[in-house]
């Protein structure tokens, strides 16, 4: 499979802050490429440079065979952006919005109207052509946001959390749309805070943290990085939120503990698969005077992998 996007040693600084530090990755043509990282990891900055919204300080980006330094306009023509924020004009109808953005890519006349209607049909808004965004639900606005980014039939679609704040039905529609876009030949770079979405639709996933690449590969490849880890869920009677910080701190000092996450009545501990690991944890847990109601272990998944590799939860 040919590489459609090649990012080499990308560095982007904002003053003294290095938002992206020597980052390299590539995306194959016709691939859905997931981009994961905690808040402030550098995901949005990377996408911003890739989509020509910001200039890079160092490195090179190649999209569809064009280099960003030499052929920025040609790269712009290839890219469709679906931003995290809904970026539409409130006083224009759905059709007028999509037509306006497609017109910026050189579409005119019947071709423009046809492309706009097709994009709206694609996102399931063909019966809302004349509706203004202020009359739409959150999910419909999200779909219109997508239509505005894909009407000019881009070869590379960059989607930054396109499902934030939508209902389950709209989310399913959006995810199916992304799959269909891939089937039509587009390459998609997708970021999300929802791990299950990324697992569900992405062919490969890159994880970045502090502006650097932590891991990149298929879901199976990433999970294999943490096969020596298992998650232990301990449910207790008392709220661990009350003393959560203290409990986390003590549990983290135990040998073989990789990460600790506390929720209402449950503590999740990622530990190395070694003899006596669980026993030590249970002893320590009972030493806190907290009754154990239930214990559950899980094999590693993307969540485990993310937490282990970055030390943070995705959210």
């Amino acid at each position: 499979m040919s590489q459609f996007v090649i990012v080499k040693n990308l560095t982007k600084k904002y003053g003294e802050l290095t938002a992206v530090d020597n980052l390299s990755f590539d995306v194959d043509k016709n691939e859905i490429f997931g981009f994961l990282g905690p808040n402030g990891a550098g995901k949005s900055t990377t996408l911003s440079v890739l989509t020509t919204l910001s200039d890079l300080n160092k490195g090179d980006i190649e999209v569809g065979g064009y280099h960003i330094h030499k052929d920025k306009m040609k790269i712009k023509q290839l890219i469709g952006m679906v931003p995290q924020d809904i970026a539409v004009y409130e006083n224009l109808s759905a059709l007028e919005n999509v037509k306006f953005f497609a017109s910026l890519y050189g579409f005119r006349g019947k071709k423009l109207t046809g492309a706009a209607k097709e994009a709206l049909e694609f996102v399931g808004l063909s019966d809302r052509l004349n509706m203004k965004p202020k009359q739409m639900s959150g999910g419909m606005k999200r779909r219109l946001n997508i239509a505005c980014g894909i009407a000019h039939e881009p070869q590379l679609i960059v989607m930054d959390e396109p499902t934030v704040g939508v209902d389950a039905q709209s989310r399913e529609h959006i995810l199916n749309s992304i799959r269909t876009l891939r089937e039509r030949g587009a390459t998609v770079i997708y970021t999300s805070h929802y791990m299950n979405e990324v697992e569900e639709i992405c062919d490969r996933i890159a994880i970045i943290d502090r502006g650097q690449m932590v891991a990149c590969g298929t879901k199976a490849e990433l999970v294999s990085l943490v096969t020596d880890v298992q998650s232990v869920y301990i449910e207790t009677k008392l709220s661990v939120a009350f003393e959560g910080a203290e409990i986390k701190k003590k549990l983290k000092t135990l040998p073989n503990v990789k990460a600790v996450v506390t929720e209402e009545n449950t503590v999740r501990i990622d530990i190395s698969i070694e003899q006596n690991s669980i026993t030590r944890i249970l002893e320590q847990f009972l030493a806190f005077g907290m009754p154990i109601i239930n214990i559950k272990t899980e094999v590693p998944n993307l969540d485990t992998m993310f937490l282990t590799l970055t030390g943070h939860e995705l959210r």
Partner: peptide, 13 residues
């Protein structure tokens, strides 16, 4: 405010 300025900036114009 509409967040549309980024769409204008990335357009090949």
């Amino acid at each position: 405010q509409n967040k549309t300025i980024n769409r204008l900036i990335i357009a090949p114009q």
